[in-house]
């Protein structure tokens, strides 16, 4: 027995799910079209576009490059973000609210302004556009998210755990490494996956801060500007599968950790 409002809401939910999944499904299907032109109807089918992706050195290079940039910037964001959170969490000092706002700033600045201010900034500090610049830009963008996730986990940590470690003779560094850090692990895992996805998918920073080597989103953008073709569908589908698999795996892993640890 469902009331009309319940039926309406359920229908609306599933309609929205269709809206979310239909374009992605169409994109996957279009990659199997045996023609150079994008468009329906599809009369002939082929797997050659998908097979080509794995032989296209430009795509493979871009994939490896994007992965490298994502991993390095995620690692940096984790260290810096955790550091900021551990500093701000227990500290009580004049101007804390201001410092907190500065920490969150990169998360709320519109993307294009963030990328362009970074482009000017790296010129001012004498850094060339390229790998280092993209990594710096992504790290700055990721740090607030890591710090906020770690802060919320730190808030849930019983003080007695660290105090017990101190009573047993651990100094504050050892207590941090052996007690606080393991406690933070679920939030660090969640944050690292979040950063990986943000970095791997990022377009605007890679576009304005990149050198000659394109990241995968920049490569797809460049191909799109020169015309749509099923080859782009195949590349995009590979990105889709990689990101969705990573996200789903992370979702399961963090759920299991939270279930056992906290």
């Amino acid at each position: 027995m469902m009331r009309p409002s319940q039926i309406a809401l359920t229908t609306f939910y599933w309609a929205f799910i269709v809206y979310l999944f239909l374009p992605l499904a169409l994109m996957v299907v279009m990659g199997f079209k045996d023609s150079n032109f994008i468009g329906f109807p599809i009369n002939a089918w082929t797997t050659r576009w998908y097979l080509q992706v794995f032989q296209d050195t430009a795509v493979l290079h871009a994939f490896g490059y994007t992965l490298l940039i994502s991993i390095v910037s995620t690692a940096l964001s984790l260290v810096i973000g955790t550091w900021c959170a551990v500093f701000l969490g227990p500290a009580r000092f004049w101007g804390r609210a201001l410092v907190f706002a500065v920490m969150c700033l990169p998360a709320v600045i519109p993307g294009v302004i963030s990328a362009i201010s970074m482009r000017i900034f790296i010129r001012a500090i004498g850094l060339e556009p390229g790998t280092g610049a993209i990594i710096l830009g992504l790290t700055i963008h990721n740090v607030p998210f890591v710090a906020l996730m770690v802060l919320s986990r730190l808030g849930a940590m019983p003080r007695s755990q660290v105090e017990a470690a101190r009573d047993l003779g651990a100094d504050s560094l050892v207590a941090f490494l052996r007690v606080t850090l393991p406690f933070l692990f679920p939030s660090l895992l969640g944050a690292s996956i979040f950063c990986m996805l943000l970095s791997f998918d990022d377009f605007v920073r890679a576009f304005f801060l990149g050198g000659y080597q394109p990241t995968l989103p920049v490569l797809i953008f460049a191909e799109l500007r020169s015309g749509m073709s099923p080859a782009i569908n195949a590349i995009s589908t590979v990105v889709l599968v990689v990101t969705a698999a990573l996200g789903l795996w992370a979702e399961r892993a963090t759920r299991r950790l939270k279930g056992t640890r906290s």
Binding site: D201, P217, S236, L240, T243
Partner: peptide, 14 residues
């Protein structure tokens, strides 16, 4: 979880 560019492209196909 899928990026800005890929989802924009999906809308173009739609």
């Amino acid at each position: 979880w899928v990026g800005e560019i890929v989802r924009t492209y999906a809308i173009m196909i739609l």
